[in-house]
Amino acid sequence: MTRLMMRKMKDNQTGTISAIKAGGELGRRIRDMGLIPGRSIKVQGRAPLYDPVALRIMGSTLTMRNNEADYIEVETE
């Protein structure tokens, strides 16, 4: 079990969100999309320029910029 920020995750790596460290509009957006602690996610891939990142969550795909993924802490096996 290691904790790391989502930006550091490799493609196809899975994990469980352990904390969201953003408030305000960004924090709100992140949570509204279902990124909340306890949720399992999988990094599906990255855009050709390595940013943004695409995630698999609740059976659908979300994308976010790396600097937004920096606020999401993930626990991986």
Partner: peptide
């Protein structure tokens, strides 16, 4: 102003 968050869905 801050960039609007990009967080969005990639619809099927």
């Amino acid at each position: 102003g801050e960039p609007t968050p990009f967080v969005m869905e990639l619809p099927p």
